[in-house]
Amino acid sequence: MTVRVRLPVHLRRLARVDGEVTVEVPGEVTTDAVLGALERRYPVLRGTIRDAATGRRRAYVRYFACEQDLSHEEPDSPLPARVADGSEPFLVVGAMAGG
């Protein structure tokens, strides 16, 4: 499946991309699967969104999609169908803190 991903500006600069990116996700579209595809395509992002060793989401990062906060969903549970079919993006968001 082709999934749209919207990254915060710091990660867009790191990955050297503008606007949304798309990634090909084999199999079921879950948070882990999307982030895995993203990290394979942009290795510099490995460790910036989730811990490289444990896979745990970094404390100041949230996941949104379809007007929902999915940050606390199981990372291997399916994302909404509208993310999986590409009609809505999966948002990686830097928490509003400090600055």
Partner: peptide, 8 residues
């Protein structure tokens, strides 16, 4: 580095 996205 940042607290948000870690170390590079």
């Amino acid at each position: 580095s940042t607290s948000w996205f870690g170390q590079l």
